[in-house]
């Protein structure tokens, strides 16, 4: 297990290095010159050149990358050009909000999605299965912004039970904090639950037909034990991977939902940075998003290994 974790960490480090290079190169290739943007529209050439030298923009790319990367390793993500303050605190604030959204949404998806999937598989072909399948289709087929608008109209504008957007920190009290989360979370999970439920259903159906489940029944174990201990544990393997990807996805910002609900998370921050050509902010945001994604995948791999002894003992295709 230790060896496995080490291997995964080594891969993670490699991915992040490659990722940082890509991010750096892509932002370099973007139109617009940082120095002239800082100097402003009417600055003279001398001023621009001075800024260029000061920022080291006249140096070779490799040196610029080295300086940027060294800064990141020391915790310095640079300064935002537009907001004129360090990037790190801005990012952390957005990330913490996205994290709240991701954790709450994932918890809901895990409980309801897996539960519905198991129910559908066990009652295959019956009423419960057909309902889960039908609702899932609706969840997958209809785009999330549609649900977002419908929910805002019903609960925000018409019933006025919930705020239509924005975010309240937990410091303002639990109720405002939670009430701001309800609509984005519900919109987000509608689609995710549908996916997880369908995935769990199909892998659960496969596992329920295996010999070891049949043998568990031949041992006289109650159906509940057969389903939870023998079937679900093995059926969850593909679900874990998808859940981790979803977690990374939400953490990295769900632009449409954040926009509709004016939720100040990573998605909106990135959108803002791109619209304003704030290169340091773009670089840092993308890097943090990819890191979050990789960490979520690492968590999935480790969890996968924990559930699947074949990988844990280094016999699988690690």
């Amino acid at each position: 297990m230790l060896l496995y974790t080490l291997t995964r960490l080594a891969y993670l480090a490699m991915v992040l290095v490659v990722m940082s290079i890509l991010v750096f190169l892509v932002t370099q290739a973007m139109p617009g010159d940082v120095a002239s943007m800082i100097a402003g529209q009417f600055a003279s050439k001398e001023v621009i050149d001075a800024i260029t030298v000061k920022l080291g923009l006249d140096q070779p790319l490799i040196v610029q990358y080295g300086r940027w990367a060294a800064g990141i390793l020391q915790g310095d993500l640079g300064r935002s050009l537009v907001l004129e303050q360090p990037v790190a605190p801005i990012l952390m604030e957005a990330l913490s909000r996205s994290l709240v959204l991701a954790v709450v949404a994932l918890a809901v998806v895990t409980v309801i999605g897996i539960g519905a999937g198991v129910l559908a598989a066990v009652r295959r072909g019956r009423m419960a299965d057909q309902m889960v399948s039908g609702v899932s289709y609706l969840g997958i087929a209809v785009p999330d912004f549609f649900w977002a608008i419908v929910l805002v109209l019903i609960f925000g504008s018409y019933l006025k039970w919930l705020p239509t957007g924005g975010y309240a920190p937990l410091a303002d009290g639990f109720v405002p904090w939670a009430s701001h989360l309800v609509l984005p979370v519900v919109t987000l999970v509608l689609m995710l639950i549908a996916r997880i439920a369908r995935l769990t259903r199909s892998s659960m159906i496969d596992v329920l037909q295996t010999n070891y489940v049949k043998y568990a029944r031949a041992k006289g174990l109650p159906e509940k034990v057969v389903i939870v201990r023998h079937a679900l544990r093995n059926a969850l393997l593909p679900t874990i991977t998808v859940l981790a990807i979803d977690f990374g996805l939400i953490l990295g910002g769900v632009v449409v939902i954040e926009t509709v609900f004016s939720f100040p998370g990573m998605g909106r921050l990135l959108l803002f940075a791109i619209q304003r050509h704030d290169l340091p902010l773009i670089q840092a945001t993308i890097l943090i998003i990819s890191t979050a994604y990789c960490l979520a995948n690492l968590a999935a791999d480790l969890l996968y290994a924990f559930v699947n002894p074949k990988i844990r003992h280094g016999m699988g295709n690690a």
Partner: peptide
Amino acid sequence: VFQDPFTSLNPAL
């Protein structure tokens, strides 16, 4: 006791 011992045992336990 079933036919194929490998598939009759739960791989995760």
